[in-house]
């Protein structure tokens, strides 16, 4: 079985210890996905696995066999166009150093799908109600798995709000 990374079939590593993160960065040289803590505490390595956001540092590459992986490199269309959320991060100053940005963007794209699906969060007052309200408090809670040490959170939330507005229509 192979792993499909941004539409390209790749072979899993021979060594079962290799994480999905190291497969992406060291074997495939897709260095957009970042290694922060390498122990599931920062979210910098977030990628989309069959459309769901996961931490690639705690995923063994072998676990992704037969699955579809999307990274920051696979979000934009052909040519020089950015994904809508990448563009919004530029416009709303959603970054300073940029190290957490690929993880933030992958995470937020999946978060938008979760909102559309009506999934609740810890701060959703009525947990049985669907869909939950889209408030800043909801966005901040749902994005809490992605740390930003520069403190660009306000811009990050504004960029995400922009994407949610643009795609709500």
């Amino acid at each position: 079985m192979t792993i499909r990374v941004n539409g390209t079939e790749v072979s899993p590593p021979d060594d079962a210890r290799v994480s999905l993160l190291d497969l992406l960065r060291e074997h495939l040289h897709l260095t957009g996905t970042k290694k922060g803590c390498d122990q599931g505490a920062c979210g910098a390595c977030t990628v989309l696995l069959d459309g769901n956001r996961v931490l690639s540092c705690l995923t063994l590459a072998a676990q992704a066999e037969g699955s579809d992986v999307r990274t920051i490199e696979g979000l934009a269309g052909e040519g020089d166009d950015l994904h809508m959320l990448q563009q919004a991060f530029v416009e709303y100053d959603g970054l300073q150093c940029g190290y957490c940005t690929p993880g933030q963007i992958c995470s937020a794209i999946a978060m938008a799908d979760e909102l559309r699906r009506g999934d609740p969060s810890y701060v959703t007052r009525d947990i049985a109600a669907s869909p939950p309200p889209v408030t800043r408090a909801e966005i901040r809670e749902r994005m809490s798995g992605n740390l930003c040490r520069c403190g660009a959170h306000n811009g990050i939330v504004e960029a995400i709000e922009h994407m949610l507005r643009e795609t709500a229509a």
């Binding site: 977030t46 996961v54 931490l55 995470s107 609740p120 969060s121 959703t124 749902r142 798995g145």
Partner: peptide, 16 residues
């Protein structure tokens, strides 16, 4: 049970 699950870890980790 929903609330307790949602209190744990992050969305990424809960997906895994």
């Amino acid at each position: 049970l929903s609330r307790a699950l949602l209190a744990g870890a992050s969305a990424q980790i809960r997906n895994m």
